[in-house]
């Protein structure tokens, strides 16, 4: 029972921090709030007996992705984002859609009871969650696991191709012309 209340508490904090992520004006505070959201989600995973996912959540999101965010904020040297002007135009429309979606989810969520207790894949009782994930990753989910390598390869190609500095062909020629003129004088 205490687990249920803790779950609600963590979820509530996650929602509050998520709202804070959006409305903070200083991007560093936004990033810090987002770290809080990730930590609250990790706590919820622990309550759901998924310790491995919780650890991965903290390592990947808090440890890697958020650090990257903060680095970018530092390098770009943004102090205050001008959000009001950016999002003003569609705000009313967005609020209406958002509230409608929220109401729909609340109504649907309260009017139903989910009958299933757990997923279709059996979870062996004697294994901890890390072993269960490993077992299924390398048996039932072996094909998706391998296909992810293709997706990651595409990501790497994109980073290299789009990130590399390139000079347009015309510019190089101009430089050559300038040099020859300089040498003749």
């Amino acid at each position: 029972m205490i687990q249920e209340y803790l779950g609600y508490a963590f979820s509530f904090l996650a929602v509050v921090l998520a709202i804070s992520t959006i409305i903070q004006k200083n991007p560093v505070y936004s990033a810090a709030s987002l770290i809080g959201v990730m930590l609250m989600l990790a706590c919820n995973y622990v309550l759901l007996n998924a310790e491995f996912i919780a650890a991965i959540q903290v390592i990947v999101y808090v440890g890697a992705i958020m650090v990257l965010f903060v680095f970018v904020i530092m390098l770009l040297n943004i102090e205050y984002a001008k959000r009001e002007k950016l999002y003003y135009r569609g705000r009313i429309f967005g609020v209406i859609i958002g509230v409608a979606l929220l109401l729909k989810l609340l109504i649907v969520g309260y009017s139903m009871a989910i009958k299933i207790q757990q997923g279709d894949l059996p979870v062996p009782k004697d294994l901890d969650s890390t072993k269960v994930v490993g077992k299924y990753l390398f048996s039932n989910y072996i094909l998706p696991f391998e296909v992810i390598s293709v997706v990651l390869l595409i990501g790497i190609i994109g980073a290299v191709v789009l990130g590399r500095k390139e000079r347009p062909n015309g510019e190089q020629k101009e430089e050559v012309v300038v040099k020859t003129i300089g040498s003749t004088h």
């Binding site: 729909k104 649907v108 139903m112 009871a113």
Partner: peptide, 9 residues
């Protein structure tokens, strides 16, 4: 049943 709401969402 009425439970299909969240599935439909």
């Amino acid at each position: 049943g009425i439970q299909t709401g969240i599935f439909l969402f």
